[in-house]
Design a protein around this nucleic acid. Structure first.
Lengths: 215, 215
DNA sequence: CTTATATTTATACAAACGTATAACAACAAG
DNA sequence: CTTGTTGTTATACGTTTGTATAAATATAAG
C-alpha cells in the first residue's frame, strides 16, 4: 500500500514552461508528432500531466509555443555571431551558409521537428503565421546581406533582381539543409558546406570563401 | 428501428486499395497526420473501417503504401514527358524545373503531405527507406541530364563535380518547390519557375530557356 | 510556529483510437 | 433457382487520448 505522494519542488512559471516546451520538442523530434501526447510530454519533463493545463491553455497552445521556440532557436543558431565592424558582407554570408548546413541547425532532429510542424501549418492559422513569419524573416536577413555583398563586388542590383536572388539563395540553403538533416549519411563531412558556398556564389556571381570552423 | 444494412457493391482488390490510399493522402494533405484515422479514412473512401484491415495489415501498412504512392506520383508528374529524340538535355532539364515548381507538384497539399510523411521517417525504417530511395532516384535522374547538358555546352565535368552539381540543383529545386507549395501567395505567377531556371542555369554555368506551358 | 496561497499531484471521465470478430449480402458458379 | 464464397458491414473491446476537477503539499508571509 504505497499511499505516498510523489515529492516535488515548486519552480518559476518561466522555468516550467521552458521545460515543457523542451520536452515537447524532444518528443516530436525523436518519435514524431504522434508521440507528443500530454502524458508523454509530462513524463519527459518530469512532471505530471496536470501541469500542462496549468501553464498552457491546452495541448494545442503548448504545440504552438514549441513551434515558435524551435523556429527562433533555429534562426538564432543560424545567424549566430554579429557582423564584425569592417567585415565584408560576403564573409558573413559564408558564415551563415556554414552554420545552416552543419549541426545542430542541420540535423535529423531539427529537420524532423520542422517537418512535423509544417504538416500542422495548413490546419492551424496560428501555425501558418509562424511559418510565414519565419520564412520572411530569414529571407529578409539574407537579402540585407546580399545587397552589400554585391555592392562590394561593384554591382548594384535592381530591387526585382535582389528579391529573386534572395529567394534563390534561401531555396538552395533550405534544400541543402533539408537533405543534409534528413539523410546525414548521404554526404561527406563538409561536402554540403562546400556545395552551399559554391552554389550561393554561382547564383550571386561571387566567390565565397569557406569561413572555417567557428571557435 | 432502422435495422437496414448499408448497401454496397463489390470492387476489385486493386480498386479498393487505391481508393483507400487516395483517401489517406487526401486526409493527411488537408488536415494533417492526426486526421488520418481509420474511421476518417474509411469515411473519405466511402467504406466502413473494417475494410482497411481487410486490404492492409493495419493502419501503418496503409500509411506506408500511401507514402510510396505519393512519392512515385510526385516523381512521375515531375518527370512527365520523355525526352524527345534529338532534344537538347538542357531543354528537358528546363521542363523538369518548370514541372517541379508549378501545381500540382508544387502545391500546399503535396508539400503538407510530404512533410507529414517526413516526420515519420525517423521513427519507421520502412518510411526512411522510401525517403532515401526517392531522394536518390530524383537526384540520379537529374544527374543523368546534367551530364549531357554540360557536354552540349562543351564541358566534361569530373564525377565529383557532377555529383556536386546534381546535389546543388536538386537542393535549389527542392527549396523552391517547398516554399512555393507552403507559401503560394508569396510569389507571383511564374516567378518561381523563372528563379528556378535562372538558378539552375547559374549553378551549371548554362542558360536555360523557359520551356513554356505544357499542352 | 501558523496560516494562506497556488503549484503540483492524483484521479476521474467521456470521446476517439486501432484492432478483432461475427453477421450479412453481393456476386459467381452450378 | 440454389448454393458457396468472400467482400463488406456492423459491433464490440481494451487502450489511449485531451480535458476537468478535487486533493495534497511546498513555499512564502505573518
Amino acid at each position: 500500500m504505497d499511499s505516498s505522494r510523489r515529492s516535488f519542488t515548486r519552480e518559476s512559471a518561466e522555468h516550467r514552461r521552458e521545460a515543457l516546451i523542451r520536452a515537447t520538442l524532444t518528443l516530436i523530434g525523436r518519435k514524431g508528432v504522434q508521440a507528443a501526447t500530454v502524458r508523454g510530454i509530462a513524463d519527459e519533463a518530469g512532471v505530471t500531466l496536470g501541469l500542462i493545463r496549468h501553464y498552457f491553455d491546452g495541448k494545442d497552445d503548448l504545440i504552438y509555443a514549441a513551434y515558435q521556440a524551435h523556429m527562433s532557436q533555429l534562426t538564432d543558431a543560424t545567424m549566430e555571431g554579429p557582423r564584425q565592424a569592417g567585415e565584408p558582407a560576403a564573409h558573413q554570408l559564408a558564415r551563415i551558409v556554414r552554420a545552416s548546413l552543419t549541426p545542430p541547425v542541420s540535423s535529423p532532429q531539427a529537420v524532423g521537428l520542422w517537418a512535423g510542424f509544417l504538416n500542422m501549418v495548413q490546419r492551424d492559422p496560428r501555425m501558418a503565421e509562424v511559418h510565414s513569419r519565419t520564412y520572411y524573416d530569414f529571407r529578409d536577413r539574407l537579402q540585407a546581406l546580399i545587397a552589400p555583398a554585391l555592392e562590394e563586388a561593384g554591382e548594384t542590383p535592381t530591387p526585382e533582381r535582389l528579391r529573386a536572388l534572395a529567394i534563390a539563395c534561401n531555396a538552395v540553403i533550405d534544400g541543402l539543409w533539408l537533405e543534409g538533416g534528413a539523410l546525414p549519411e548521404a554526404f561527406g563531412p563538409g561536402e554540403l558546406v562546400n556545395i552551399g558556398l559554391t552554389s550561393v556564389g554561382a547564383i550571386l556571381g561571387l566567390t565565397l570563401n569557406d569561413p572555417g570552423e567557428e571557435t
